[in-house]
Design a binder for these strands. Structure first.
Lengths: 197, 197
DNA sequence: TGATTTCCGTAACGATCCCTATATAAAGCT
DNA sequence: AGCTTTATATAGGGATCGTTACGGAAATCA
């Protein structure tokens, strides 16, 4: 089969990015060598350097691609119901046990890249933008039922789910679904601080 | 000055552990080489291998030492006031900008070791125990004002603070103190799910 | 005080790692 | 069909890493 250069290049880039996501989630940024990353994509290190310049360039590109593909899948399942409890449950379930087709360990990759961004100028702004997008997307999905700022609630939601998943990953019994849902409900209905004024 | 072997050994161990905490927070587990770790403690790699066997042994020892020294400092400042708002504010402030004497980047170290534990059998149980201790200590401090499980609220508190600090570290303007405190208040007073039954 | 043990410094090895320079094969062009 | 360009493979260098083997000085013991 004949394929154009552009097709070949695009496919290689795609393979490299996907393999990077999976392997880094599994082994960490430092634990995934350039050769291993290329190998996982059925290419060689030469392809990585031709596409991204260096290892950091691959990571930055990985962040850029992820930036866009965040909120869509979440929103679909979220809006399948009208009941608030079921909605929050869907949100939480999606977070702690993502659909098996998606890379199982994307939360690990998230932490890995966050940590990388904390120490790397170039990556920091990208990860920050990614979180900003996530907040906005979730805020739009929640569409501000109360007078409180939707983006504020979104930030709290994301924070709570990340923190709970961290604890649960180490000890699955430490965090029950009921606890998580109760927390989300409480945050969703936060009132102005001065209820008693 | 004459010093006994035990004193010398104990001091070396102490120096190695403290230097490890600081350097790993700064560079990450993989980024802090054994020689660099020893250097930061004014020792050489030989000392590390004599004390801990290998690099992983040093990390495990670091986790064990940390396990104990968690909740005490928090509790003191927390109980300085009776007002709930001021208490939560102290908790949050302590988390996002720890006292300058303590290693500034201990939250980074926390993430670093959590990520390490996710991929390492031997470390996982220790970090899990550490989180369990943190939950219990905070639960005891909150001393269950409502009928809800104090440990449940503690888990939610920790989760929220971790997640908010992650977002704030990338973008200090993303999370205001008011948002954080509103979230803590909401979680503190979570009622049973069925308020309407 | 001489012998022994303990603690840690020193030196070096093999394995990896990131990256560069160059080769190769396919596609595009005329 | 030749010539050029592009995309990736190949080979290898220089640096760094974790680890081990051994040496030497101080403390302990007799």
């Amino acid at each position: 089969m004949r394929r154009s250069q552009d097709q070949r290049k695009a496919e290689t880039r795609q393979r490299l990015l996907q393999a990077a996501g999976e392997l880094i989630a599994e082994r960490g940024v430092a634990g995934a060598s350039v050769d291993a990353l290329a190998d996982a994509a059925d290419r060689t290190s030469g392809a990585i350097y031709a596409h991204f310049g260096d290892k950091e360039g691959l990571l930055v590109a990985l962040l850029d691609e992820w930036k866009d593909a965040t909120g869509d899948a979440v929103r679909a399942e979220y809006e399948a119901t009208d009941d608030e409890g079921a909605r929050f449950a869907a949100l939480w379930r999606n977070f702690v046990s993502p659909p098996p087709n998606a890379s199982d360990a994307w939360v690990l990759l998230e932490h890995e890249l966050w940590l990388y961004a904390c120490r790397n100028e170039r990556a920091r702004s990208r990860v920050a933008a990614r979180y900003d997008d996530a907040r906005r997307a979730l805020a739009q999905t929640l569409h501000a039922s109360d007078g409180t700022s939707a983006e504020e609630v979104a930030a709290l939601f994301i924070a709570l789910m990340i923190g709970l998943e961290m604890q649960r990953r180490l000890d699955p019994d430490a965090i029950t679904d009921e606890t998580a849902l109760a927390g989300l409900r409480a945050l969703a209905h936060l009132r102005q601080p001065a209820e008693n004024v």
